[in-house]
Measured scan of single mutants.
Amino acid sequence: ETQAGIKEEIRRQEFLLNSLHRDLQGGIKDLSKEERLWEVQRILTALKRKLR
């Protein structure tokens, strides 16, 4: 995994995270989306740690 590859994956995950946040802010309670949001946040945290 290169730095560029990790950064690209971070961009993808952040896009997905923002999309999930928008969907959930629409007021629709969706447990699967909430679980996915937490999963994406965990992935992002792990990726950012790899960059250090």
Rank of each mutant, 00 (worst) to 15 (best):
E1N: 09
E1Q: 12
E1F: 09
E1W: 09
E1M: 11
T2I: 09
T2Y: 09
T2L: 08
T2P: 05
Q3R: 10
Q3Y: 07
Q3C: 15
Q3I: 15
Q3T: 12
Q3V: 15
Q3E: 11
Q3D: 07
Q3L: 15
A4H: 09
A4S: 08
A4V: 09
A4G: 06
A4E: 13
A4Y: 07
A4Q: 10
A4K: 09
G5R: 15
G5E: 14
G5L: 14
G5P: 03
G5S: 12
G5W: 15
G5Q: 14
I6Y: 02
I6H: 01
I6K: 01
I6S: 01
I6E: 01
I6R: 00
K7N: 06
K7G: 03
K7D: 03
K7Y: 11
K7C: 15
K7H: 06
K7A: 10
K7V: 11
K7W: 14
E8G: 03
E8A: 12
E8N: 06
E8V: 03
E8M: 07
E8H: 04
E8P: 01
E8F: 02
E8S: 06
E9L: 12
E9D: 05
E9G: 02
E9V: 03
E9N: 03
E9F: 04
I10W: 01
I10R: 01
I10P: 00
I10C: 06
I10Y: 01
I10D: 01
R11Y: 04
R11E: 07
R11S: 05
R11H: 04
R12C: 14
R12H: 05
R12D: 04
R12E: 04
R12Y: 08
R12P: 00
R12K: 12
Q13K: 04
Q13F: 15
Q13S: 02
Q13A: 13
Q13L: 15
Q13H: 13
E14N: 03
E14Y: 09
E14K: 04
E14G: 01
E14T: 07
E14I: 12
F15L: 14
F15E: 15
F15I: 15
F15R: 14
F15Y: 11
F15G: 11
L16D: 02
L16C: 13
L16Y: 05
L16F: 04
L16V: 05
L16G: 00
L16A: 02
L17T: 02
L17G: 02
L17N: 02
L17I: 06
L17W: 11
N18K: 12
N18L: 11
N18Q: 13
N18E: 15
N18M: 13
N18V: 11
S19I: 13
S19Q: 14
S19T: 08
S19D: 08
S19C: 13
S19F: 06
S19P: 00
L20F: 02
L20N: 00
L20S: 00
L20I: 06
L20A: 01
L20E: 00
L20W: 01
L20R: 00
H21T: 14
H21G: 05
H21Y: 15
H21C: 15
H21R: 15
H21V: 15
H21D: 04
H21F: 14
R22N: 10
R22C: 14
R22L: 11
R22T: 07
R22V: 09
R22G: 04
R22P: 02
R22D: 07
D23Y: 09
D23A: 12
D23K: 05
D23C: 13
D23F: 12
D23L: 12
D23Q: 11
L24T: 04
L24R: 02
L24V: 04
Q25C: 15
Q25M: 12
Q25W: 07
Q25G: 04
Q25H: 13
Q25Y: 05
Q25V: 14
G26P: 08
G26S: 14
G26N: 13
G26Y: 09
G26T: 13
G26H: 09
G27N: 08
G27Q: 07
G27S: 07
G27D: 07
G27H: 05
G27W: 06
G27M: 05
G27C: 05
G27K: 04
G27F: 15
I28A: 08
I28L: 09
I28G: 08
I28N: 10
K29P: 09
K29R: 12
K29D: 08
K29Y: 13
K29V: 10
D30C: 03
D30M: 02
D30P: 02
D30Y: 02
D30I: 03
D30K: 02
L31Y: 08
L31T: 14
L31C: 12
L31W: 07
L31E: 12
L31K: 13
L31G: 06
L31A: 13
L31R: 13
S32T: 10
S32G: 10
S32E: 13
K33T: 12
K33D: 05
K33R: 08
K33G: 04
K33W: 12
K33H: 07
K33L: 15
E34F: 15
E34R: 12
E34A: 08
E34D: 04
E35D: 05
E35W: 06
E35Y: 11
E35L: 09
E35G: 04
R36T: 06
R36H: 07
R36D: 05
L37K: 03
L37W: 07
L37P: 00
L37S: 09
L37C: 09
L37F: 12
L37R: 03
L37N: 01
W38R: 14
W38A: 14
W38T: 09
W38M: 12
W38Q: 13
W38H: 13
W38L: 14
E39S: 02
E39A: 04
E39Q: 07
E39F: 04
V40P: 00
V40H: 04
V40R: 00
V40M: 03
V40A: 06
V40G: 01
V40F: 04
Q41H: 07
Q41S: 07
Q41W: 14
Q41M: 14
Q41T: 10
Q41Y: 13
R42E: 09
R42Y: 05
R42G: 05
R42T: 05
R42S: 07
R42K: 12
R42F: 04
R42N: 09
R42D: 05
R42W: 05
I43H: 06
I43R: 08
L44I: 14
L44R: 00
L44Q: 00
L44M: 01
L44S: 00
L44K: 00
L44V: 05
T45D: 15
T45R: 12
T45I: 13
T45K: 11
A46F: 06
A46P: 00
A46M: 10
A46E: 15
A46V: 05
A46L: 07
L47D: 00
L47I: 01
L47S: 00
L47V: 00
L47T: 00
L47A: 00
L47H: 00
K48M: 08
K48W: 10
K48P: 00
K48I: 11
K48E: 04
K48D: 02
K48S: 02
R49W: 04
R49Y: 05
R49Q: 14
R49H: 11
R49C: 13
R49E: 14
R49F: 05
R49L: 10
R49V: 12
K50A: 11
K50N: 04
K50E: 06
K50I: 15
K50G: 02
K50P: 00
K50T: 04
L51Y: 03
L51A: 02
L51M: 04
L51V: 02
L51K: 00
R52F: 08
R52W: 07
R52P: 03
R52V: 11
R52H: 12
R52Y: 10
